[in-house]
């Protein structure tokens, strides 16, 4: 179990999407066999977990990127957006 429940949800949902039992945050997109065919489904998963505020065009989703790295990229992006929002207000 991971500290951030969103990461666990990402692992679970991606495993289900990839129809594997991999439940390791270090598993990469390539390990999971997610190709361009399943990218749209993966984006649905990510938006459901992290919300629509995340810009998935800015997230590195290359084959060698792990789920943990994807999670950290998204969290960083959301934190940054939150900080910008706070500074504007």
């Amino acid at each position: 179990m991971h500290t951030d429940p969103r990461l666990q949800r990402l692992v679970d949902a991606t495993s289900e999407l990839a129809a594997t039992r991999i439940s390791d945050v270090a598993a990469t997109i390539g390990d999971l066999g997610l190709d361009s065919q399943s990218l749209a489904e993966f984006l649905v998963v990510c938006e459901d977990i992290y919300g629509d505020a995340v810009d998935m065009n800015e997230v590195n989703l290359d084959y060698e990127v792990s789920l943990n790295e994807i999670h950290l990229q998204i969290v960083r992006q959301l934190d940054q957006a939150g900080a910008e929002h706070r500074s504007r207000n």
Partner: peptide
Amino acid sequence: GRYKRVYDG
């Protein structure tokens, strides 16, 4: 716009 990368391949 937010799904540009779906068409990147």
